[in-house]
């Protein structure tokens, strides 16, 4: 597929604007050229929010998200491009794949938050999972209990006691995970409010950094706790 690069003249045009790959007329973020009606590739720079036609906000109504996803699936799905040129088929395939990834990412609150952190503050792949500071001691102890349970005889009195302790821990940790997810939701609301105010002063910047930092910390702790819960579920069933 041959994709013409914008010529020098179009540099003056806003960043979001580019040219139709087919008729070279200007397209401004729409997915279909106004002049030749050809499908336009979702640009690499387009974030998942834009891809689904949503503002970059963390609180998303699942019904709205789904409606947008269905609407755009109808626009991009390869099923509807069988009679079109090979170039259009290739664009439809890429667009549909990107759209599916965008939907999958934004549908899940945790993935959505990770994605936003990635957009705002760089790669989340570098986030190391870490235990919540207040749970550090407790988790060390839990690991010992787990080891003891795994090594010992499950039907013995000690085995039963260990199992009961692990079950209690599992309940506590699951509650903790739910709390963290609730807090994440509250941070979503705070983040969205800050964005809506659109202030750019020093205080707003500090607030922004604080929210991002806290989200990052929460995600890191939550993943840690979740891994332990999975471990527990696997061991005690």
């Amino acid at each position: 597929m041959n994709q013409p690069t914008p010529s020098g003249g179009s540099r003056n045009v806003q960043m979001a604007r580019s040219m139709c790959w087919h008729c070279q007329s200007e397209v401004a973020g729409e997915y279909f050229c106004e002049r030749c009606v050809k499908v336009q590739p979702v640009s690499k720079e387009t974030d998942y929010f834009t891809c689904l036609g949503l503002p970059r906000r963390l609180t998303i109504d699942p019904a709205v998200l789904e409606a947008k996803y269905y609407e755009r699936s109808r626009a991009f799905h390869p099923d509807f491009y069988l009679n079109k040129t090979e170039a259009e088929q290739a664009i439809s395939l890429d667009n549909a794949a990107t759209l599916n990834t965008a939907y999958r990412t934004l549908r899940d609150p945790v993935q959505r938050a990770e994605y936003l952190l990635d957009l705002e503050a760089g790669s989340v792949k570098t986030i190391r999972t870490s235990p919540p500071a207040d749970l550090f001691e407790e988790i060390l102890e839990l690991q010992d209990t787990l080891d003891a349970y795994r090594a010992g005889d499950h039907s013995s009195e000690t085995g039963r006691q260990l199992r009961a302790r692990l079950e209690a821990e599992r309940g506590a940790l699951e509650r903790r995970q739910a709390e963290m997810e609730d807090e994440l939701q509250r941070l979503f609301v705070e983040w969205d409010a800050l964005q809506d105010r659109g202030e750019a002063d020093g205080q707003a910047r500090m607030e922004r950094d604080r929210l991002l930092r806290r989200m990052r910390e929460l995600l890191s702790n939550r993943t840690y706790v979740k891994n332990i819960v999975n471990d527990l579920v696997e061991t005690i069933g």
């Binding site: 794949a97 990834t101 999958r104």
Partner: peptide, 8 residues
């Protein structure tokens, strides 16, 4: 698994 296709 269970990712909607097309997927990349």
């Amino acid at each position: 698994r269970n990712t909607t296709i097309p997927a990349n």
